[in-house]
Simulated scan of single mutants.
Amino acid sequence: MRSRLKPRSTRAAPGRIVLVVGASSGIGLATALAFAARADHLVLVSRSTEALSAAETACRRAGAATVDAVSEDIGDPAAAGRLVARILDRHGRIDVVVHTATVMGYGSVEEMPGDVFTTVVDTAVHGTLHLARAVLPVMRRRHAGTFIGVNSLLGSVTVPRMGAYAVAKWGQRAVLRTLQQETRDAPGVSVCIVSPGSINTPIYYQAANYTGHAVRPPWPVLAPERVAAAITRLADRPRRHVSVPIGPGNPLVITGFRLLPRLYDRLVGPLLKLAVLTRARRRPTPGTVHHPAPANERVHGHWPAPPGEPVELPD
């Protein structure tokens, strides 16, 4: 599903200043490498200092013009302001911002500890809010810039035992849609939403988990490079919304959720057990919700995981 924003050139501007938040793993790292291959100037942000150092090295090898790695937690209200000040001091402008930082949690609303639920939501909603409030005024002054928020299929539907993530992504999507409305008076400034489906990243195995079972990404599982390619295309030619994969899959699920709610609710629980929950037992864990696990951060996850062998999560 695609919808156009303000017309822009399809040619990539050389040497753009690109800020990637959540750049040490998964979609964020894949995106950073994609921009690096275009010889852009990168500012990589993550709360995981060790993994961020590896990401910086990888981006330099991939061809980035310059790489500045900054360890910050975007959930900190002051972090975005520090980032913007640092970028303006070094580069004088910000051309593209990609917000991919997120944490995931599995467990019913009743089972999941309140602090875990709240942090999952805050990372997506308040992280997006803090970043947008710091970045968009800079773009307005230049009459140029693209802000890309990585949302999710779960920003449009709900799934049992994934309530925290759904609330996070619904809230984030509301922030991004409101920003699209509020920047209509800002020529040259674009706010874009990317909604991936199931992507092979480490997030599933590092998630908070209170289901009693190890989890896996549901089929069909796509490579994070697919999302990164969609993001780089948006930087060249902004659109309001892009779904990954492009095609009927995500829209069909959303249509069922909206138009056939009773049938959807009857099927979604059994499908979750079949497609997401494995037979392997898993003790309750907050995963990486409160603290990162640098050793497990990489572009790709472990899908398909060996049968009966859950990937270990941090305690």
Rank of each mutant, 00 (worst) to 15 (best):
A23L: 09
S53D: 10
Y106V: 00
H91C: 09
P220Y: 06
D265G: 09
V135L: 00
D89V: 07
S195L: 12
L272W: 12
L52W: 11
A62N: 05
A32L: 11
T128R: 02
L83P: 05
A12F: 09
V125P: 00
P238Y: 02
A295T: 04
R239W: 06
H291Y: 10
A32R: 11
G171W: 07
S24K: 04
D40W: 09
L234S: 07
T278E: 13
P113Y: 06
V189T: 12
F117K: 07
R279I: 06
L154D: 04
T49K: 11
A32Q: 10
V98L: 13
R61E: 13
R262F: 06
W303K: 06
A164S: 15
P113D: 07
V109G: 03
H290P: 03
T285E: 04
L179H: 12
V70W: 06
Y264Q: 06
L222R: 14
G149S: 08
R226I: 02
E297H: 10
P314Q: 08
A164M: 13
S195P: 08
V135Y: 01
G114Q: 08
R184T: 15
H291R: 15
R282V: 07
A78T: 09
A228R: 01
A166S: 15
R173I: 00
Y205F: 12
T288E: 14
A207R: 01
A166W: 03
R216H: 02
V227Y: 00
R281P: 03
P314R: 04
A229D: 13
L277R: 03
S3K: 12
N250Q: 14
E72S: 12
R240K: 12
R142E: 15
R173C: 03
E56R: 07
I17F: 01
V120P: 10
T285W: 03
R86H: 15
H300V: 08
T278Y: 14
P292Y: 05
Y205S: 07
R237L: 10
H213Y: 09
T102I: 06
I231K: 02
W219C: 07
G155D: 01
A58G: 04
R177G: 07
L42M: 08
T285H: 08
R60I: 05
K273R: 15
G149D: 04
